[in-house]
Amino acid sequence: MTATADFPQQRIMTEKHPPVLEVEKLQISFRGDDSSTTVVEDVSFTVGRGEVVGIVGESGSGKSVTSYGIMGVLPPNAEVTASKMFFAGAHDLVRLPSKKRRRLQGKEISMVFQEPLTSLNPLMSVGKQIAEPLRYHEKLSRKEAKRRTVEALRSVGIPRAEQTYSSYPHELSGGMRQRIMIAIALVCEPQLLIADEPTTALDVSVEAQILRLMKKLRRTTGTSILLITHDLGVIAEMADRVVVMYAGQVVEEAEVYELFREPRHPYTKALMASTPKIEEVRDELESIPGAVPTPSKMPTGCRFAARCPKAMEICSERPPEVELGSGAKTRCWLYAEQETGS
């Protein structure tokens, strides 16, 4: 694929080591009283070492549930199955007993959530919250944990780190709280950081600062990042590779430059055309008619068919399959036709 030519160094990194995360045919359902609802189906992707993979999608696409499934923080009525979900080539995240999983959570895989105020403990100083994983996972002494915490506070750009150590979340601004979340997530130097809409609740200037911080941390620590967002701008700014989700499925996967230059799936195209851009003046934005189907009423064929300007007869009859393997993937009959034809 020409896509990889833009990122030669990336390619080398991913080829030398096993991927940090391999997900194949992930399915997540929630059991109800007498029925079960599948919200994520047939989701496959990998995250290479040091790579930033963005998952983009609108409400109901299943992007957040996917990330919770990987992190293992879904409620007890969730059922997670996958033909493969490996962390660092060694840990099977589907079958991992909870005791062993806890050894990974917050140590090797950590997570940053959208709303830092509800994710932080309001009754605990932020320093103690950052030190917690160090004490738990690395069994550090109180003194040593404090030293590392102050270091972590500095590395996420918090001024007067010693004083902030004993502050409580309500005393800090939204941007500062999100920096604390990132410090907690990164203090044990995880191999994979999952960031679920990390900047959605923030002002643009603070968003830019947090994105810049995440880029810097990736560069200095080599942490891989799985970035969940609804914002194509954040993807354009951060991602190496992009997974586009729609109605619980991956509809397209491509290297980021390729995706923006030449989106393939009609949904990706429509998403880009409906996003206003400050470089262009348009009278009208393209919009996608209709709404995302609900999980209980999923169509039998392609899930986007009802809203797709290019829908054909086959689209509403049979679901298109994604070609697995390397390079770009598109879950669309337009491309399946092309491939069988050639």
Partner: peptide
């Protein structure tokens, strides 16, 4: 500060 509209 506004995110770019394309990776280019």
């Amino acid at each position: 500060s506004s995110p770019v509209s394309s990776p280019e």
